[in-house]
Design a protein around this nucleic acid. Structure first.
Length: 555
RNA sequence: AGUUCGAUUGUGUAACGGUAGCACCACAGACUCUGACUCUGUUAGUCUAGGUUCGAAUCCUAGUCGAACUACCA
């Protein structure tokens, strides 16, 4: 049995609605992106929420593109958004577009004009701003506010017919220019834009504003719970006003606090700058908090969903520690990623009592966490690559790796005893020498010895090579947006370090883009989209926890 | 300044008038053919001041602090 989990505030609202018989017990949500950019982890939260609630309460969730501004929107984004949602593991019930409702929205507007609740305004943008009032002072009525219904009907029809240029006229709702909520001071419903729309082409030259389109679109789709982020809370009275005046299905809006993550930025504007100014290689750069970036980084949909579920949902400002996300990624990869050996910073290990030219092949377990994970063949010989940091000529007491006199297990192979090392003229270590214990063979160990350290290795004669890209956090500070000055001043200059050639075990030679593995003791890595046979490229998804590194740092 | 929303360990989130809990992080230990994983434990919190009540994180009042809002963007 799964344990009882407390409800978040939206689940409470929904369960209460169901209990009260609201909407005949129906739950229908929607995810409404504007197709003007790529999805990021914030959107992922909203996706998990909307699709998750629909699933939990046997309801439906629509995918609706909020495409009411033809200037910024493109089909390319529609496709990437759909792809990201599918990758995250969700399926929408209906694929819809606000632009599907342009005719219906126009009819609604005519109704409001007839009721004397909307008027055509000839004021310029500057004039409207100037008469809007301020946070503490009321606005002033437009001189065009009292036009007759017939006149408004005619002018609105003329707007649609293309008789006016951009900005010459608008349609405004007639609410209250003294309302304390600025959004209620005769908000714009339509503006003129002689622009090509990615779906309606040149059919329209007037386009509805968000506030006028969104609630009505929800209503048309019979959305029961319209969930958005907190910055729209001021829009709710207007959302309700339009629906009430039109007497249409009463969808309701609920707001939650958008999620922020440490060591990154989330606003579309800032992400765009990172891309345009080449601080990253693109929207899908593995350092980006975009869904496509995280996918390329090697994060799994399961991990992202688990993360969204773990951090929960509330109405207060927040900034979630990125280590929470990394924990979820490790947790899933630990169960699913095969273990392999790769040496990133090599030094040669010579086994002096193992005959040159001889070779062993070991079957090594792919994943100790997965009983059905199977094994792979790993060749062994007298010369191996090991990590440079796994040998110390003069080692501290708690160093369990290779040091003269120390015993260490070569993962899946033998226990070796370190005999010393060879150096070049400038004192750099060029070879580590050791002898092996034949009776300590992995799985058939009769030596009776236990060793504290186990290290990974790759046989020099059999090694393949690959490029490895080591990623770190994009920023040096937890919350770049709240720091003094420009957020870009806080970019981490070492967020990507490329190692052109590392040694990998031969079993990895046919890895293909998207494959995820653990380089034992080094971290989780995935094969990059740019990787090709013979020219492999791995991205470091996330490091392993490293208690020894902490110990060393502490001194 | 006005309106609206919010405030629980370092972070995120529960507790719905009745034992302040869970996860991450940090720390300590056990285990380990990954210094990983796993397991055990530790540290640490109700913004402030009043009030209601047998009893307040929760209800009330006042304050403090934070966020959002004055785009022909969404």
């Amino acid at each position: 049995m799964s344990e009882e989990r407390s409800l978040n505030f939206l689940e409470e609202i929904i369960e209460n609605d169901i209990e009260m018989g609201a909407n005949d017990g129906r739950v229908h949500t929607r995810f409404p992106p504007e197709p003007n950019g790529y999805l990021h982890i914030g959107h992922a939260t909203s996706i998990c929420l909307n699709f998750g609630l629909a699933k939990k309460y046997s309801g439906k969730c629509n995918l609706r593109f909020d495409d009411t501004n033809p200037v910024t929107e493109e089909t390319e984004y529609v496709e990437s958004i759909k792809n990201d949602i599918k990758w995250l593991g969700f399926t929408w019930d209906n694929e819809l577009y606000a632009s599907d409702y342009f005719e219906q929205l126009y009819d609604f507007a005519v109704q409001l004009i007839r009721k004397g609740l909307a008027y055509v305004d000839d004021s310029t943008a500057e004039e409207i701003a100037a008469t809007k009032g301020s946070l503490v002072t009321p606005g002033i009525n437009s001189p065009y506010r009292e036009r007759t219904v017939d006149e408004n009907l005619q002018l609105f029809a003329d707007m649609r017919a293309g008789k006016y240029k951009d900005g010459e006229k608008t349609l405004r709702a007639k609410v209250d220019m003294a309302h304390p909520n600025l959004l209620m001071r005769d908000p714009l419903m339509y503006r003129i834009k002689h622009e090509h729309h990615h779906r309606t082409g040149d059919k329209w030259c007037i386009y509805p504003m968000y506030d006028y389109a969104h609630g009505q679109s929800d209503s048309i789709e019979q959305i029961t719970h319209s969930i958005c982020t907190l910055e729209f809370i001021h829009h709710r009275p207007l959302y309700d006003w339009f629906i009430a005046q039109l007497g249409i299905f009463p969808s309701h809006q609920y707001e939650f606090a958008r999620r922020n993550l440490t060591y990154t930025v989330m606003s579309k504007r800032k992400l765009l700058q990172l891309v345009n100014e080449n601080h990253v290689t693109g929207w899908d750069d593995p350092r980006m908090p975009t869904v496509s970036g995280m996918r390329r980084r090697g994060y799994t949909p399961e991990a992202i969903r688990q993360f969204c579920d773990t951090i929960g949902i509330a109405k207060r400002e927040n900034i979630t520690d990125i280590s929470m996300l990394e924990f979820c990624v490790r947790e899933h990869l630990n169960k699913t990623a095969n273990r392999v050996m790769a040496v990133l910073d090599p030094v040669k290990l010579v086994i002096t009592n193992y005959p040159g030219g001889q070779e062993d092949v070991f079957d090594i377990e792919n994943n100790p966490e997965d009983p059905n994970g199977g094994t792979r063949k790993v060749p062994f010989s007298n010369e191996l690559w090991i990590e440079r940091e796994d040998f110390m000529e003069e080692a501290p007491k708690k160093f369990f790796r290779l040091a003269p006199g120390n015993l260490v297990r070569l993962k899946g192979a033998f226990i070796v005893k370190c005999e010393g090392c060879k150096k070049d003229d400038s004192g750099n270590i060029t070879e580590v020498h050791c002898t092996y214990l034949p009776e300590s063979k992995s799985g058939h160990d009769t030596s009776g010895l236990t060793v504290k350290g186990t290290i990974h290795w790759v046989s020099i004669a059999h090694a393949k090579t690959a490029e490895v890209r080591m990623y770190d956090r994009l920023f040096r500070v937890e919350d770049p947006s709240s720091e003094e000055g420009n957020f870009k001043d806080y970019i981490n200059p070492d967020s990507m370090q490329i190692i052109p050639s590392v040694y990998i075990e031969p079993a990895l030679a046919d890895a293909v883009p998207g494959d995820r593995v653990q380089f034992m003791r080094k971290g989780y890595f995935c094969v990059d989209t740019e990787s090709k046979p013979g020219k492999l490229v791995f991205n470091r998804t996330v490091t392993l926890k490293d208690a020894w590194a902490k110990e060393v740092k502490r001194g």
